[in-house]
Every structure is written in structure tokens, then in C-alpha cells.
């Protein structure tokens, strides 16, 4: 047994890396705790007082509360939809011998690679002008964004769950079917309980990705379905100067990331690479 831990130099290096990683976020908290008077003191890196007004003002504003509620509705709706669809789709892809299923699988994945900038205009036109029933348009609705976020969340969810489904031995299905179980029973009694951790990760990551999305939310909504990310952007373009409140709103926007980080840290890489690298 050695007294001095091995590779202590690496610990020192990583303390440095961690400081660099955390400093911008730390500074965000600092600014969010500063009053207008304290704001322009960049030399003071330590914050001892807390100016709660920065948080209270936006949170007591009806419009902004609406933004948060919209974000929660859209992210939750999208996470639920994506998870349900992905479970059904990956079960089908994993357990049924469907013609051309590998091509379908590949096609679903490629959807994620599409550059949003190229899809902004057609989606805007479709939502605002083409996809409408009477007076009701997809534009500026929760359901519009919930459906749209499937484009980038479904591919990754399908990838993540496909490998998990493939990992569940097919003998379990077959044994249950011999005992007379229907497809629904197999799905609910065997597959879903066994895949539960993976399903939870899928739901959480979908939720976070939907919560974080800005570009489409900004383009495809105007009043009723605006999200917190668009609210954050408005601070720069409209009010411009109220940095304390902007920081506070940013903190609110990144709270879910902080909360879920430890939980899904191991799976982020799979989520972002589609398991191209395991």
C-alpha cells in the first residue's frame, strides 16, 4: 500500500479543468445574485449578497410564467410521445421480421442529421399556411412543437432503445406466448419492466433536449406557445440591459440540466452519438 495516491498530478490537472468548466456557470449565478448597482464590478469574483428581485420579477410576471408552463408542457408531452412511439417502434424492429426494416431504421436515424436552418423556412410555411383545419393552424400551438421535436428526439430514442430491446432474450417472449400471452401482455409484463431503466433515460434525455430547443420554438410560435428559451432570447433583443434578470432566467433554464446530470451522465454520449461509439 502506498501512502501518496497514484497520479496525483492528474488530480491537479483535473481540478484546473473543472474550474474552467464551472467558472462560466458560476459567473452566471454571481450575476443573477447582483443588483443593478453591483452589476458592473467585474473585478469582484466572490458574491456574498443575494438580490432575490432578479428571480422574483420574472417569476411573478404572468407572461414569463406562461413561458415556463409552455416549456414544461411541450417537453413533457414530447418526452411521453417519443418514449411511447420509440418503445412500440423498437419492439417492432427488434421482434418482427419486417421487410426493409434495416433501411427504415437507417432512415429514422438520418432525420437527426438534418440541419435545422434548412428546415426552418419550409416548416414555418407548412405550419403557418399549409397545415390548417379551418381557422386552426399548427403555428403557435403546443402540439405543433411536440410533434416537431420528434424529428430529433425519436431517432436517438429509437437507437437507444433498439440496443436495449435487442438485449432482452427473445426466449422470454416465446415462453410467455406458449403460455398464451398476447402481444400486449408480452409488451407490458415482460418488455417494459425489463427495459424500464433504458426507457427512463430515454424519457429524461428527450425531455432535456426538448426543453433546451430554441430555434424552432422561436420561429414556429408567436404568443401562446412560446417557451423559456425564447423568453431568454427576448432579454437580449427587447430589454437588452437587464443583465441580472437575464442571468436569473438562464439559471432557471439550466436547472433541469443540473438536476438530471448525475442521473444520465453515462448515457449522454450514447444519446448524442446514437451509440455509434459504445
Amino acid at each position: 500500500m502506498r501512502r501518496v495516491p497514484r497520479n496525483i498530478g492528474l488530480t491537479v490537472l483535473w481540478i484546473g479543468v473543472t474550474i474552467l468548466t464551472l467558472f462560466p456557470i458560476y459567473w452566471l449565478f454571481v450575476i443573477s445574485a447582483r443588483s443593478r448597482v453591483e452589476l458592473f464590478e467585474p473585478q469582484r469574483l466572490i458574491q456574498t449578497t443575494f438580490f432575490a428581485e432578479n428571480y422574483i420579477r420574472p417569476l411573478s410576471d404572468r407572461t414569463f410564467r406562461g413561458y415556463i408552463i409552455n416549456s414544461v408542457i411541450i417537453a413533457t408531452g414530447n418526452a411521453l410521445l417519443v418514449t411511447i412511439l420509440a418503445v412500440a417502434a423498437t419492439y417492432a424492429l427488434s421482434r418482427y421480421r419486417l421487410k426493409g426494416s434495416s433501411n427504415i431504421f437507417f432512415w429514422t436515424i438520418t432525420n437527426r442529421m438534418a440541419p435545422p436552418a434548412a428546415f426552418l423556412l419550409p416548416l414555418f410555411l407548412l405550419y403557418a399556411r399549409v397545415l390548417k383545419i379551418g381557422d386552426w393552424k399548427m403555428f403557435d400551438t403546443h402540439i405543433g412543437l411536440i410533434l416537431l421535436y420528434c424529428v430529433f428526439n425519436l431517432p436517438f430514442a429509437i437507437w437507444l432503445l433498439k440496443s436495449i430491446m435487442d438485449g432482452i432474450p427473445i426466449e422470454l417472449d416465446e415462453a410467455a406466448r406458449v403460455d398464451g400471452a398476447t402481444t400486449r401482455m408480452v409488451l407490458f409484463r415482460i418488455i417494459i419492466p425489463l427495459a424500464a431503466p433504458g426507457i427512463a433515460i430515454t424519457a429524461i434525455l428527450s425531455w432535456v433536449f426538448a426543453w433546451n430547443e430554441y430555434l424552432f420554438a422561436a420561429t414556429l410560435t408567436s404568443v401562446t406557445a412560446r417557451t423559456i428559451t425564447t423568453g431568454l432570447a427576448e432579454f437580449v433583443t427587447v430589454t437588452g440591459t437587464n443583465w441580472g434578470e437575464m442571468a436569473a432566467v438562464s439559471v432557471i433554464a439550466l436547472l433541469p440540466a443540473l438536476l438530471f446530470l448525475a442521473l444520465v451522465q453515462k448515457y449522454i454520449v450514447i444519446g448524442l452519438t446514437f451509440g455509434a461509439v459504445k
Binding site: 479543468v17 473543472t18 468548466t21 464551472l22 462560466p24 456557470i25 459567473w27 452566471l28 450575476i31 432535456v208 426543453w211 433546451n212 430547443e213 430554441y214 428559451t229 431568454l232 432570447a233 432579454f235 437580449v236 443583465w243 437575464m246 442571468a247 438562464s250 433554464a253 439550466l254 433541469p256 440540466a257 443540473l258 438530471f260 446530470l261 448525475a262 444520465v264 451522465q265 449522454i268 448524442l272
Partner: peptide, 20 residues
């Protein structure tokens, strides 16, 4: 674990953070 934090932050909030 801490190192992975930026990955979860909304890009728009990353922009705001760096602006500050």
C-alpha cells in the same frame, strides 16, 4: 461527471452565460 455538465445546458443559455 462535472465535466459533462456543459453538454446538458441549453445552447441558448450557453450563449447567455458567455455573454455575461
Amino acid at each position: 461527471t462535472v465535466f459533462a455538465l456543459p453538454l446538458m445546458v441549453a445552447p441558448i443559455a450557453v450563449g447567455a452565460t458567455w455573454r455575461l
